[in-house]
Structure formats: C-alpha cells, structure tokens
C-alpha cells in the first residue's frame, strides 16, 4: 500500500498543472457543481489570504519603523516660568550637546511646535499665548547613549527639563504591531488549514460518489496510483486555478486602497511594496500544493477500502 503512494510524487503535481487532460484524466466523471464550488472556495480562501498576507507584511513594516524611530531619537521637554524659558532651554541644549552618544540637539521653532499642536487646537490657535514648553529633538547617534544617565544629569543641571525617550507610548504600539503580524501569519495558516479541509471534503465526496467507477477501474487492472492521480490532478488544478483568480482579485483590491503617503496612517499602509507584490503570487502555488496533498491523503484512505 505504502509503495503505491510513494510514487505519487511532486511530478504529478507539476504534470497536473501543465498537461492537457488526457484519457487518464477522463476516467473520473465530470462533477459539475462540485467543481465550481471547489473553484469558488479556493478563490475565496486565496482572496482572504492576500489580505492576511498584506496585514502581516504591513504590521511587520510598522513594527520595524516604530522600533527604529523609538531607538532613533528622544525629545526633551523644557518647562519654565514665562521669561525664564529661553535660559532654561539654552542650559538644556548645553547639557545635551555634551551628552555621549547623542547627535546635535535641535530646538523646535515656535511654528513647528504650533504644527504639532494644530491637530488638537486647530491652526488658528495663538500658541504664543499658551504656556507651551520648549521642545528639543535629540538624535541618538551611538550605542553609548544612556537615557537614564541623561535624565539624572538634566535633573541636576537643567531643572524643568524632562527627557522623553518615547518608550512609554511607542513600546505598546510596537508590541501591538508585532502581535498583529503574528495574527496575520496565524490567519494565513488557518486559511491554508481551512483550504486543506475543504479540498479534502470535496475530494472525499468525489471519491465516494465515484465508488462504482473506482471499482470498475480496479477490476480492469487499474493501480491505485492511476486512479488517485486522476483525482489528484483534478483537485490540484481546481485549487490552483481558483486560488489564482482569488489572488488576482485580492491584489487588485489591495492596489485600489488609498496610497500610504496620502495620510500615512496604519490602514492606508496596508499593502505590498516593491518585491512584496510578488509574494501573493505564491498563494496559488501553496493552494495547489495543499490541494495535491489533501486529495492524495483522501484518495489513499478511500482506495485502501476497495480491493
């Protein structure tokens, strides 16, 4: 029994996809609606897989970007009574300029600070009238940058200056992005498993419906591999064709999403970039492989019961 199916190798998968239907394939009767349902299911699964893949890739990029930004710069907020703020800012700049591992500090001009507040107060708000702290951006230039040491120095040499290394708000976002990426990958695996289940059920139904055909074929000397290959080819082909259609639809859907530069938000970043557009094209290949192995398994079980 095992020997029969060891010969059912990947070559059958390839031949099933590229060869015209010969007489060997015609031994299995056409299945009408079942075939269309298999095509539709494979297409729907592939469509969903494209979005799951896009989600996994986009969240991966997001986590990477946030991580690098987290490590790339810090902000120092200088709060002082009106009239003393310039002096406090200068003192802080002095401390920051001599901080090991830090780049050149930059005091954000009032219009840039106003821009940061605009989403909350609107563009016409007179920021000058508000007790807004001075903001200093400090690029992190080396591994020897010690945020905790700098914090203590500022406390001693520039009271009122508070170091914000963005950890508090960015780290949960990075964690969330990483978890979303894992969810995307889990979704892909679930889609593959659901596709395998669906194809196995369809193949088993087809094999059961063709019990008499299988018996006739066995009686005239057909080997298990001959019968199984006819079913395997058919379902591999359906899975591949359905998945190709679903993948193309999914890719078109992704392509029609608004560009990520338009708003820069997370949802608009859901998509593929550069070579990433080639990745969804692997989905039909995976679907064909899933169809091949699921049908092979179902055929193995079913034919074993027919002498």
């Amino acid at each position: 029994m095992g020997t029969d199916f060891r010969a059912l190798n990947l070559r059958a998968l390839w031949q099933g996809l590229i060869r015209d239907s010969g007489p060997g394939d015609r031994i299995v009767p056409p299945t009408g609606v079942t075939a269309q349902l298999t095509l539709f299911s494979a297409g729907a699964m592939a469509f969903l897989a494209v979005f799951a893949l896009a989600l996994a890739l986009a969240t991966g990029r997001l986590a990477e970007r946030w991580s690098s930004e987290l490590a790339g710069s810090v902000t120092v907020r200088v709060s002082a009574p009106m009239g003393e703020q310039d002096a406090a800012a200068r003192a802080t700049m002095q401390v920051l300029s001599t901080t090991p591992g830090a780049g050149q500090p930059r005091l954000l001009p009032p219009d840039e600070v106003a821009g940061l507040l605009a989403p909350w107060f609107g563009p016409d708000m007179p920021v000058d009238a508000l007790p807004v702290p001075a903001l200093i951006e400090l690029p992190v230039a080396g591994d020897d940058f010690d945020a905790q040491g700098l914090r203590l120095r500022l406390e001693a040499e520039a009271p009122g200056a508070v170091l914000d290394d963005h950890t508090q708000w960015r780290r949960p976002l990075v964690t969330a992005a990483n978890r979303l990426r894992v969810l995307g990958i889990v979704s892909l695996l679930l889609i593959a498993a659901a596709s395998a289940s669906m194809i196995t059920l369809a193949a088993k139904a087809a094999l059961a419906a063709n019990g008499q055909v299988i018996r006739v074929l066995r009686l005239i000397g057909a080997r298990d591999i001959t019968i199984a290959t006819a079913f395997v080819r058919r379902f591999t082909k359906r899975a591949a064709i359905g998945a190709m259609a679903g993948t193309l639809c999914g890719m078109a859907g992704i392509a029609m999403l608004p560009g990520m530069d338009a708003a820069g938000g997370f949802l608009t970043g859901l998509g593929f970039q550069g070579w990433g557009w080639l990745l969804p094209l692997l989905i039909p290949v995976v679907a064909a492989a899933v169809g091949f192995f699921a049908t092979r398994w179902a055929a193995l079980k079913m034919l074993g019961a027919v002498r």
Partner: peptide, 18 residues
C-alpha cells in the same frame, strides 16, 4: 459496469488507458 460518461470506444480502450 461501464464508465457511463465515456463513449463505448473509450470504455473498450479503458484497460489500455489504465
């Protein structure tokens, strides 16, 4: 029993095919 979806000639040739 025959494979009813195949013409007689193809049914006759079935042992060769398999």
């Amino acid at each position: 029993q025959f494979l009813d979806h195949l013409p007689v000639a193809e049914n006759l040739a079935l042992p060769l095919t398999v």
